[in-house]
């Protein structure tokens, strides 16, 4: 059943020009970022004395920055992807097809989330060219890539669950997109709030609630249980909220 639902959502994504425009734009912007980071890095390397080049890490300066930038791009790209998931169905009155059938709400939500994720993965696939280029210029330490990709994928999952919820509460795609952009920014701001707070415990709570600290740890290859639990509970909470929001029809 999930497969049937997923196939329908994925087909509807990949048959619309929006998907290709987004994939194209994403590749373009992340490509420019990558190129820019490479140039900055090589300029930096040439500027410092020969015996100190070891202090400037390629991983820190290029790879981790690139993935942090990809996370930043998600702020706009993921809301654009998730905005239509429920809003469109509401506008077309097509949710009734599901409600007339024995399908359960969580199956619909999961299938839509997975379809959005598949589009994100298609975007990230384009960035797979970058390691090839790095390999071409003689850098072969790719161990960091696994955790780097994992971190952006986990972030994407969290943003998608938030975006799905926003889409389920509004029949208007633009409003759904704006809400999820604000939601993601709020998630980042929680962490900034933690940075500004002098009370250690409050700061720790803020850091745990915000998404950035978890993202950065996994990005650097420290994959802790608490971070995985954070993502799992984040996605579950917004999944449940979306189920509740769809249940509103029964009021």
């Amino acid at each position: 059943m999930i497969w049937t639902l997923f196939k329908k959502e994925a087909q509807s994504y990949f048959s619309s020009p929006l998907a290709y425009v987004l994939i194209g734009l994403f590749s373009l912007i992340s490509g420019i970022m990558f190129f820019n980071l490479l140039v900055t890095y090589s300029d930096g390397i040439q500027a410092i004395p020969q015996n100190m080049t070891e202090t400037v890490s390629f991983v820190d300066e290029v790879v981790l920055r690139l993935f942090a930038n990809i996370n930043f791009l998600f702020l706009v790209f993921i809301p654009l992807i998730t905005m239509r998931l429920f809003s469109e169905e509401k506008r077309q009155d097509t949710l009734e097809i599901f409600w007339l059938s024995p399908v359960r709400d969580w199956q619909i939500i999961l299938a839509k989330g997975l379809a959005a994720l598949s589009l994100i993965l298609a975007m990230l696939l384009m960035t797979g060219l970058f390691p090839l280029i790095i390999w071409g210029i003689g850098i072969q330490d790719f161990s960091v890539l696994f955790s780097a990709y994992l971190s952006v994928i986990l972030n994407a999952c969290a943003y998608i669950s938030l975006g799905l919820f926003c889409s389920s509460i509004s029949g208007n795609q633009i409003i759904a997109a704006l809400l999820s952009i604000l939601g993601i920014m709020f998630l980042w701001m929680i962490t900034w709030g933690g940075n500004l707070n002098s009370n250690f415990i409050v700061a720790e709570i803020f850091h745990y609630l915000g998404i950035s600290s978890h993202f950065e740890r996994i990005l650097r290859g420290v994959i802790g249980t608490q971070d995985l639990i954070y993502y799992l509970s984040f996605i579950s909470i917004f999944g449940i909220l979306t189920v509740k929001s769809l249940d509103r029809r029964n009021w």
Binding site: Q92, D93, E96, L100, S101
Partner: peptide, 17 residues
């Protein structure tokens, strides 16, 4: 759910299918 067929006032159609 499999016992009831409904044609609502606005037919629930996916325009891109």
């Amino acid at each position: 759910k499999n016992q009831i067929g409904l044609l609502p006032e606005n037919a629930p159609l996916y325009p891109d299918m």
